[in-house]
């Protein structure tokens, strides 16, 4: 007799069933912070184009408790995005040299090193 039973799967809460799904969703949700932050940058450009007074008012507004909280959460989300992104690069872009594949740790390490250099440049330019 053929009467297969299909177990229900919740479309809205499936990711609560396993820790690895929660980590995946945390990774995906970082994009909302990056989306919002990019619009903040665009707003900053607008203020920059409007002149010193407008720009200073923009920086002033950043300093509100809400502004600081927002920046802090973006920072945390962005760091989580960076680590999860770099950690999987050897899977998406393996490099074969001669016969062997370059060990994943080396590819990841190179990304982290470059990340440090880029961050330093941004900080020097910005600070």
């Amino acid at each position: 007799m053929n009467k297969p039973y299909v177990r229900p799967l919740s479309k809205t809460s499936w990711f609560l069933t396993q820790p690895r799904y929660k980590r995946y969703m945390a990774r995906e949700v970082t994009c909302l912070f990056i989306f919002a932050y990019t619009f903040l940058l665009i707003m900053g450009l607008k203020r920059l184009a409007e002149g010193p007074d407008a720009f200073n008012a923009f920086v002033q507004a950043l300093g509100s408790p809400l502004g600081v909280l927002f920046n802090l959460s973006v920072l945390i989300a962005a760091v989580y995005h960076s680590t999860t992104w770099f950690n999987v690069t050897p899977q998406a872009m393996p490099i074969q040299r001669g016969e062997e594949f370059v060990p994943g740790k080396i590819i990841i390490g190179a990304h982290y090193a470059l990340w440090a250099v880029v961050s330093l440049i941004v900080l020097i330019l910005g600070v």
């Binding site: 903040l40 950043l62 300093g63 920046n71 920072l75 995005h81 961050s119 910005g126 600070v127």
Partner: peptide
């Protein structure tokens, strides 16, 4: 974004918290 956004967010956070009035100037 993996390379630059954390550092950018750090810069704007510093600017927001005004660690140094000479940074992030117009």
């Amino acid at each position: 974004t993996a390379f630059v956004t954390p550092a950018l967010a750090l810069v704007t956070l510093f600017a927001a918290m005004r660690f140094n009035m000479d940074m992030f100037t117009y």
